[in-house]
Amino acid sequence: MRSSEGKAETASVDDLIEAIDHMGGPTTRAEDGSGAFSYEASVVASSATSHQTVWWRGGVLGFFERITDRREATLRLSGSEMILVCRDRERLVWGLERIDAMQISSRAIQLNIRDAGLQQMEFLSDSPKRWEDLLRLALDRFYALRGREVVEYQPKVVTRALS
C-alpha cells in the first residue's frame, strides 16, 4: 500500500481486509435471519467454451482458454451456492461442491466448475481479492461441515479428512 506521501509500505492482506470491513466494505452483504450472510456483486461474466492450441516450431507449446459470452450479471454467494443472475437469461446456480478450482486472474475470479467449465467474473465495483478470500472461506466452511479441510484451491480443489 502507499502512504499519503506516496511511499510504498508493506501491509498484510488480513490487515487490509479488516480495514475494508471497518470502512463498510464494497461488498453488498445481507443476513438471511439464520445468521448466515449472503454476498453479491456486479460482474461481467464470461465463460470458456473451448481451448486454442499454441503452436511453436511445429510442436504444441500449450493451450489457452477462449473466453466468450461476455455479459453483465450479478454474482451472489448464498449459503452453499453461487448464483449468477443475468438479465433476460435463466439464472445459473452452482453448488460449492462443483467448484473444481478457483483463482484470481488480473481483475477477475476464475472458477472451474464441474460440467460448466471455466467461468470468469470481472468485478465492476468490488475487489477480486476480497471475493477470493470470501470464496475460500465459503469452501472451507462447506467442507468442514462434511468433515474435510481444503488443502489446495488451484489448479484443483483438494480436500482431506479433518484430523
Binding site: G62, F63, E65, D100, A101, Q110, Q154, P155
Partner: peptide, 22 residues
Amino acid sequence: IEPRVGAFPTRRYQVDPQSVRV
C-alpha cells in the same frame, strides 16, 4: 511474441499436463 521470448502457457485453473510435458 510470447513463444519467441521463451514463454510457454500453463492453465492455472486446472491440472495442465501439457505444460509439464513442455
